[in-house]
Design a protein around this nucleic acid. Structure first.
Lengths: 230, 230
DNA sequence: CGTAGCTTTGAGAGTTATCAAGCGTAGTGG
DNA sequence: CCACTACGCTTGATAACTCTCAAAGCTACG
């Protein structure tokens, strides 16, 4: 862990995207409970924030940067279960230990909260517990949407849906820099890097998007939505 | 909807399995809140319990039988997100509408609860809200395990993991009748019926399981676990 | 300007899907 | 009680999509 927050490098154009610095309506993770305050902290690119199986002592809220959470099978296969962007909370478990590993995609700044503090608030205030529930069902919905994508959609459909989702979460400007590598995308969508790359090329040929400088992408919602089969 | 509970037919041997009739430690869905009581109701085989997009007015607890929840893509592709067995709660949403369709696999009896009643209890009692949270995270874990299976595992691994899970939930006796069709299994695991059938045949050849009469299966945990890659 | 790592592209193989029959089992009606 | 019908299951042949292996092209950074 690094205790200093260093500015993003040129590579990490993502961190410079407007959506990464705007609107944190609340620093406190739970409405109406400003007594739950966090400590600022930073992680460098590719740094592990917590590992699967570790005691879940802290909860994290992203201020800037991006984080991925994943599971690894015994032979090294990896399934990324989520990407987390500024404003997102992650690392909140109801069990004793973390069920995923969390790593910073880029230079990332977070606020760290004590899990015990949140649980105590939830035990005393029904409205906090209800917010926990709402949050969990939101994640549940996301995981089930991913399951539909992985179980029943083609590579094109998965990638189209993925790009649309990333665009929305980054502000919906249709132009953005992907904060993750092709490998990350592949491990999120149940594909290989080669298939991701090839599919992006195909989409570009079909005029569904424009690539520039590797990570930077401009999408055409209309055509992409057609490819998404939706 | 049928208002009478008729006994399972010979086909529905599943419903006769001991695990389907034992232990309902509590009728009430939430600990310490016996005032939340449900109304008994029955559904016949393949009957829809609620549809995706409908207002989520009720919550269901299975007394006997089995239920599946699924999503359907515009072109008919189906992803089953879960199978629900006796003792399970389903249909509980935090949003206004149901995000899945629920259907009875066999003759199924449920207890129906008013969702408003549960939400009112959650708003007043933090412990109820915490139980909602715990329940949601349990479902979340399940959905993410499914995502790993769909995104990163082979047909053999998916089916092996599936059989082990079903066995556990049916009492862990290693011998049981699958309550769902091959099509249901396929739509849960992101495969086709043919692949499910072929893989089961392969597993039987390898001595990982024994089939009798279509749905009835006896599994060898050791060999199956090898195939599950775990 | 060179290096390292990420990305793209190509060729071929493999797993799973698709299309097509048969088979079996369960429930039905004579 | 037995044959009939329907539906689910199994098996085979072929095709398609995606993976694997391989190499070259970019980009960012030292």
């Amino acid at each position: 862990m690094t205790t200093e927050f260093t500015p993003p490098t040129a590579l990490e154009t993502f961190a410079e995207h407007p959506s990464c610095r705007v609107e944190f309506p609340e620093i406190a993770p739970f409405k109406g409970h400003p007594e739950i305050i966090g400590t600022s902290f930073s992680y460098s690119r590719e740094e592990e924030i917590y590992g699967e199986g570790e005691e879940a002592e802290f909860v994290y809220k992203i201020v800037g940067g991006a984080v991925r959470t994943h599971n690894i099978l015994n032979d090294g296969r990896r399934q990324i279960t989520g990407f987390h962007l500024p404003g997102d909370l992650f690392g909140l478990e109801s069990g004793a230990t973390h069920r995923h590993t969390a790593e910073a995609l880029t230079e990332t700044r977070v606020l760290i909260f004590k899990r015990r503090q949140i649980e105590r608030a939830a035990a005393s205030f029904a409205e906090v517990a209800c917010q926990l529930w709402t949050r969990a069902t939101t994640e549940l919905r996301h995981a089930q949407d991913l399951a539909v994508l992985l179980g029943r959609c083609t590579a094109q459909e998965r990638i189209a849906a993925f790009l649309i989702e990333v665009d929305e979460r980054l502000g919906g400007t249709s132009t953005f820099a992907l904060p993750m590598t092709r490998r990350d995308i592949a491990d999120y969508l149940g594909l290989t890097v080669e298939t991701v790359s090839r599919t992006l090329s195909l989409m570009e040929e079909h005029g569904a998007l424009l690539r520039s400088g590797g990570r930077r992408i401009s999408i055409r919602h209309g055509r992409l939505r057609q490819l998404a089969g939706d």
